[in-house]
Amino acid sequence: MYNKKIMEHFTNPKFFGKIEDPDVIGKAGNPRCGDLLTLYLKIDKKTNKIKDIKFETLGCAAAIAASDMICQLSMGKTLDQAVKINFQDVSNELGVLPPLKIHCAQLVTEALRDAVNNYK
């Protein structure tokens, strides 16, 4: 069901946790589908770059792996660049999510966009 890369990001996520004094928070998900996620961001005010990002995700293996991936993809990017990351980028980087789990990639991009909107 899941490939090696997804399993790796699920088993050993690098970006999970909370930033205690984040510059902004982004949220996505709903209880019905079982996935709830929060992104915590630190933004460099001069460059508008994401200098730190962490996630807390209640969800399935794909949701956790996708959360880790969105953090990896957006780390060091400017906010303008970050909002351009779409669900296919996340899915492709994970070696393609199973069709039933593609919404997990949508969810994490939603959370990032939510954070960027909240920051502006």
């Binding site: 899941y2 399993m7 699920f10 088993t11 079982g34 996935d35 209640l58 969800g59 399935c60 293996a61 949701a63 956790i64």
Partner: peptide, 14 residues
């Protein structure tokens, strides 16, 4: 509380 079933199944499987 605070866990999702499928993730739990996958971790236990490991």
């Amino acid at each position: 509380e605070g866990c999702e079933g499928e993730a739990l199944v996958m971790y236990l499987d490991q």
